[in-house]
């Protein structure tokens, strides 16, 4: 168990900072040394706040609030999956949702773009605001373009790489825009997802022929193509190998400046590496919400301490 006087030791217990992995055109990973960790953290306990190399780039000032959850509850039939959760989701930062299986974090995520409405038994109370506007007032298709999502399993559609991204862009009009009309946006989305250099030779290749990690980045490209304000990620790396995971975490770091990211993860190290804020959920309740350093190093609630400590200590 981590006591308060031991908080500085958390640094020692954390996994080594993520190595920067650059994927070159031949798909040969080259390991680049990570940026040198904050000397304060490296030399030992002198500051209360915990710092690590992977977290050294954090900005102090949070961006504007993009989404607001206000007393949000979701039930499936009589079972309450999310219980009165209130949270801010800010532009330019990553919110990591952690907690044991079945604690409601995925349900919470899927409620943000009203995907839970596809489940007939699901019922929602409380308000979700997107830029101050209640999401119920928005057309659901419009909402889902602004709040985009990446799933646990890579799920490209059974079409070409190009069409996967173009599908997201093509409106449901009688006349679909042609290849030339959407091509710049498709390429831009693939670039932002860090996939373009690997696939640029043949965009007409079937997407299902890509490797798992590439498929997931294609799904991210697809989600980015609609220029969303918020990106929801439901355990995006749980089906991937460590190398692909590292590439995607790197990508999350790059994307966080332009949009708000909410990521659900089982992997506490990942939550620590990518999260600016962490929300810990347990049995549908939001137990703790705060800055990542604070939640991991000095959790206020006993349940958080047990969960975080169980994984790290």
């Amino acid at each position: 168990m981590i006591g308060n006087e031991e908080t500085h030791d958390v640094e020692r217990l954390l996994p080594p900072p993520i190595k920067r992995i650059v994927v070159d055109e031949q798909l040969q990973p080259t390991i680049v040394q990570p940026p040198v960790a904050d000397p304060v953290a490296a030399t030992g306990p002198s500051a209360g706040a915990v710092r690590a190399g992977a977290r050294a780039h954090r900005r102090g000032t949070p961006g504007p609030e993009r989404m607001t959850l206000d007393g949000l509850s979701v039930s499936y039939g009589t079972k309450r999956a999310v219980n009165e959760v209130s949270l801010p989701i800010r532009q330019g930062e990553v919110l990591a949702l952690i907690g044991p299986s079945g604690c409601g974090k995925t349900t919470l995520l899927r409620t943000l773009n009203r995907l839970t409405e596809l489940t007939p038994t699901a019922r929602r109370e409380g308000r979700i605001l997107l830029d101050g506007q209640d999401v119920d007032e928005l057309e659901v298709t419009a909402l889902r373009r602004r709040v985009s999502m990446v799933f646990q399993q890579p799920n490209p559609f059974p079409m070409s790489i190009f069409d996967n991204v173009a599908y997201a862009l093509r409106e449901q009009a009688m006349k679909r825009p042609g290849k030339a009309a959407v091509e710049p946006q498709v390429i831009d989305a693939l670039r932002r997802a860090g996939l373009y250099d690997e696939v640029k030779d043949d965009l007409s290749r079937p997407a299902l022929r890509l490797s798992g990690g590439q498929q997931q980045r294609l799904c991210i490209a697809r989600a980015l193509a609609v220029r969303p304000e918020v990106l929801l990620m439901d355990e995006p790396c749980s089906a991937l190998d460590p190398r692909s995971t590292a590439v995607i975490e790197e990508l999350i770091q790059e994307l966080r400046s332009e949009l708000a990211i909410v990521i659900v993860t089982h992997n506490l190290q990942q939550a620590y590496r990518v999260g600016d804020h962490v929300a810990f959920m347990y049995l549908g309740d939001l137990v703790e919400y705060g800055r990542t350093e604070q939640v991991f190093a000095a959790p206020r609630a006993q349940r958080t301490r047990d969960y975080v400590g169980g994984a790290f200590g």
């Binding site: 995907l115 659901v140 985009s148 646990q152 799920n155 559609f157 449901q172 799904c219």
Partner: peptide, 27 residues
């Protein structure tokens, strides 16, 4: 076809009909 493939299409702001027409039928 796994349910999350349909959801991926809905999550891009597509309607059920568009999902059937553009994703499920080709699949």
């Amino acid at each position: 076809i796994p349910a999350h493939v349909r959801e991926a299409s809905y999550a891009l702001g597509k309607t059920r009909i568009a999902t059937i027409r553009r994703v499920l039928l080709p699949a």
